[in-house]
């Protein structure tokens, strides 16, 4: 199909400025991470005149970045695995069974998506503090367990919704055949439905991981020096006296690489899963 000249002009008028808008911060991040501290304190320079890899070495000692990294990795991975598993069960029930309370459950789960995190943060804070007080030891408040439970639950509603619509797209006859052949409900789920739904599950896992890895609000109140995650820990490069901008940029780059690489590898699943519900 021939395109009009005006459309071809429009295309470039859109793509070039947008490309610059996207790229400039990424460029700044990479270039500034390669500069010595002196060069990020004076006027901004577009090119590192004295390129160095020192910031990538220093980030690990200025701030206990490795500890934050491990914390983030543990919290996010555990939350992701359990979130995906629990979402698989729940969305299988929603997709394959008609039962009393099904509508209520879906309604409650979806409506939690509408409410601001702050709304949950204050009560959660109070609930955690008081559960710990009742138990007599710190179990939830400012621990990784508390953060895992929080992240896990916050990714559940969207994961359930996404997976349920994915399961809806898998013909019911598949698991009915398995049931006729003598498989249990769980057997049918694990042997027949799950392998078919792999893209959907990957999408849900990527979504949960990205959400947990980038979360700030809950991490800022529900962690302490021992359980701190990257999102809050990264702000520690700014002290009263000085901001180590080159190290901030290096650290931002380092913590972004795993997640961006994962996203790029798995993006087609995420795109398919994200849009499955909305487009159908």
């Amino acid at each position: 199909m021939r395109e009009q000249l005006s459309f071809r002009i429009f295309r470039w008028v859109v793509l070039v400025p947008l490309g610059l808008f996207v790229v400039v911060p990424l460029y700044t991040m990479i270039m500034s991470a390669l500069k010595p501290l002196r060069d990020v304190q004076g006027a901004f320079s577009w090119w590192p005149t004295r390129p160095t890899l020192r910031p990538f070495v220093d980030i690990w000692s200025t701030v206990p970045l490795a500890k934050y990294f491990v914390n983030s990795l543990i919290v996010t991975s555990v939350a992701t695995v359990f979130s995906a598993l629990i979402a698989v069960f729940a969305s299988y029930a929603i997709s394959r069974y008609r039962f009393r309370g099904r509508g209520t459950f879906s309604g409650v789960v979806l409506s939690t998506q509408m409410f601001p995190g702050v709304l949950f943060l204050l009560p959660l804070f109070v609930v955690f503090v008081n559960i710990d007080r009742t138990l007599g030891f710190t179990f939830l408040y400012q621990t990784r367990v508390g953060l895992i439970l929080t992240y896990l639950t916050f990714t559940l509603p969207f994961s359930i919704w996404m997976l349920a619509s994915y399961f809806d797209g898998i013909p019911k006859e598949l698991d009915e055949c398995a049931r006729v052949d003598g498989a249990s409900a769980l057997g049918a789920l694990f042997r027949i439905v799950l392998p078919t739904a792999r893209p959907g599950i990957i999408a849900v896992a990527v979504y949960s991981f990205m959400t947990g890895w980038g979360e700030i609000l809950f991490a800022s109140q529900l962690t302490n020096a021992d359980s701190r995650t990257l999102s809050v820990g990264l702000q520690a490069y700014a002290t009263e006296a000085n901001v180590y901008w080159n190290q901030v940029m290096a650290a931002a780059l380092v913590v972004s690489i795993p997640i961006v690489a994962g996203f790029l590898l798995l993006q087609r699943y995420l795109v398919a899963g994200l849009t499955a519900g909305a487009v159908k």
């Binding site: 929603i94 039962f99 639950t153």
Partner: peptide, 18 residues
Amino acid sequence: TPYLLLVPAAVLELLIHV
């Protein structure tokens, strides 16, 4: 069966959301 499948999600939603 559907209720059993929903138990983990429901417990967490109850504890952390509701």
